[in-house]
Design a protein around this nucleic acid. Structure first.
Lengths: 196, 196
DNA sequence: AGGAGTTCCTAACATGATTAGGAGAATCCT
DNA sequence: AGGATTCTCCTAATCATGTTAGGAACTCCT
């Protein structure tokens, strides 16, 4: 019975509520800061009770994930655009690396502090040297080597870039000056630095 | 009666306990990550009950502050060392800027996410453009302009530098290769970029 | 010995995320 | 149409964690 009009309407309605919740979450985040976001605030803005949110998201972290997913989609689109001047092959590599790094590190930002998220480029050879990151590392889907980050310089550039981009996205000013400047500079930085 | 031997011993004992608590906090942070640190864990490791910690620290955030204070002291020393090749005046400026930025942003890391902490270099002209940071900004003691950060490039360099340094410090590997490399590169970056 | 201050304790509280379980409405199927 | 099913929201309760209140034991000093 998939494809039935009413089924579609249910899915639509569900999706709309989901969006409504995310919008509320962003509004609260913009108002009080992402760290101060509470389910109570979000629910209130939507016109629900906090537990009801669990009909749409498995947890508060799931809401964070969805939020950063949205932010990242925006970033990626803008970055693709900004990178359009580059030849196809390096552009693809840059975008893929950024995406992988985002999945690796930034998606966890709302739950962890910067220092938990950043990891050493040479983690593999000596795990003991970077104990604080072990837990985070184990959650990750790709190693730094796989992502293509070779050393600390790469790592820091990625941190600055992705951090800045997500920042701008959170600032709800993705079309603004800061965002464009950041993107252009980021693409430049990467092009130079990674030999793209 | 200040300066009395026993008064000193009391102060000593107090200081020792304080250090013990901080050591325990670091141990927990290294084991579980700084974000997952709970007073219960810290107290347990010290051999206390959680409320007893309040005899030595006003709050959990006070513990975080002390931890980052320690980390930063280490960073600053190493940085002074790494910058020793620079002429006195720019070196002083670099160190002061770093210190100011640390106070401004990084000391708050344990309580806020990266995006709450980072602020736009051009915040002053158009506060509306960077709404999420307003709360954080108001807590800050210095404006970016005062610190000497002029644009996004400066801001990102500082983010990368300070983030990396605190990272390394948290990794408990301040003498390690990564740390030295990071410092040297950071000082180089600043010298180049800021025209120091 | 007695008083003062310190440090730790237990008990209680506040907040925020989450779970349990159910009621009512919308939808589906015959 | 009407009963079964599913979905979405609710209230009530639970759990974890930071924090406060208030008191007992210990140390130090005179």
């Amino acid at each position: 019975m998939l494809g039935t009009p009413s089924r579609d309407r249910i899915a639509e309605r569900r999706e709309a509520t989901r969006r409504e919740i995310l919008d509320a979450a962003w509004a609260v985040a913009h108002e009080k800061g992402i760290a101060a976001l509470t389910l109570k605030d979000v629910a209130e803005r939507v016109g629900m009770r906090p537990p009801s949110l669990y009909s749409h998201f498995a947890s508060k972290n799931a809401i964070y994930d969805a939020m950063f997913g949205q932010a990242w989609t925006g970033c990626l689109e803008a970055m693709t655009d900004a990178a359009s001047r580059m030849p196809a092959e390096p552009r693809a590599r840059l975008l893929w690396m950024s995406h992988a790094y985002f999945e690796y590190a930034v998606a966890d930002l709302a739950r962890n502090q910067l220092m938990n998220v950043r990891i050493s480029a040479d983690f593999e050879p000596s795990p003991e040297a970077y104990a604080p990151s072990v837990a985070t590392f184990e959650q990750a889907r790709r190693t730094m080597a796989e992502i293509g980050i070779r050393d600390d310089a790469d790592l820091d550039l990625f941190s600055a870039l992705i951090g800045g981009l997500v920042d701008a996205q959170l600032a709800n000013d993705p079309g603004g000056d800061r965002y464009s400047r950041l993107l252009d500079r980021a693409v430049g930085m990467f092009a130079d630095h990674l030999g793209l």
